[in-house]
Amino acid sequence: MPHDVSKSSDESWASTPTVRRSMQSNRSRDTKPELLLRRALHARGLRYRVCAKPLPDLRMKADIVFRPAKVAVEVRGCFWHGCPLHYRKPSANSEYWTAKIGRNMARDTKNEKALSDSDWLLITVWEHEDPIAAAMRIEQVVRRRRTA
């Protein structure tokens, strides 16, 4: 989600210009954890859509989508999505980041409910998870839902 564009460059959400550059360079797709997971899924014979909307009216694009099985997969970053195991509140600009992560988590919950209401399943894979184990878990669900 973009930062508040009404702020002047002197009132940036970042604590320093270096932090700002670093945050702006973060990828929204094709991250290392996502690529490793996709490679593991492909090796298991699964085919999928990348960065696709599971539902046409939902603003969300899932990282990996299995349309026939109605399964969407999100690979979540521990910081950006408030991982219960690894998220640590930043010391710099903590008020901004606490609100930002809270909004991300609320959006994640809202998207999961919208998918569930449409008989879709959202599988969350955290960036710290083993991609092979995650791929095995996803494969079981996708194959089971395809035959149901």
Rank of each mutant, 00 (worst) to 15 (best):
K113H: 03
K53H: 13
C51S: 15
R88F: 07
K110G: 00
D57G: 10
K110W: 08
D57K: 11
R44Y: 14
L37I: 01
P68I: 03
E74M: 14
R38W: 10
C51L: 09
L36C: 13
Y87T: 08
S91F: 07
A72Y: 01
P68D: 03
A52G: 05
V75E: 04
G45T: 04
Y96W: 06
M60P: 05
A114K: 00
Y96Q: 04
F79I: 13
H81L: 06
W80R: 01
R88M: 12
A114G: 01
A99G: 09
L36R: 15
V65D: 13
G82T: 06
P68G: 02
I64G: 04
R88V: 12
E95Q: 13
C78E: 13
S116E: 08
M105G: 01
P56Y: 10
Y96V: 04
A43T: 00
A43C: 03
W97T: 02
V71E: 13
A62S: 15
L36K: 14
E34D: 04
L36M: 13
H42P: 07
L58N: 11
P84S: 07
R76S: 08
P33D: 05
W97S: 02
H81A: 06
R44W: 13
N93H: 14
R44T: 07
R107P: 07
A40P: 11
A69M: 13
I64L: 03
L58R: 10
L46D: 09
D108V: 00
W97Q: 03
R49Y: 15
L85P: 01
E95L: 14
R88Y: 08
G77I: 12
K89V: 14
L55H: 08
C51Q: 15
P68Q: 01
S116V: 01
V50S: 10
A92W: 12
L46N: 07
K53Y: 10
F66N: 00
L37V: 02
K32I: 15
L115Y: 01
P56N: 07
T109M: 09
K89C: 15
C51F: 15
W80T: 04
L55D: 02
K89T: 15
W80Y: 14
R39A: 15
H42Q: 03
T98Q: 14
D108L: 04
P68S: 05
H81Q: 10
T98C: 12
R107S: 05
E95P: 10
T31P: 02
R38Y: 11
L37N: 06
C78T: 12
D30N: 14
E112D: 05
P54V: 02
D108Y: 04
G77C: 09
S91E: 12
C51D: 15
N111Y: 07
R39K: 15
Y87D: 11
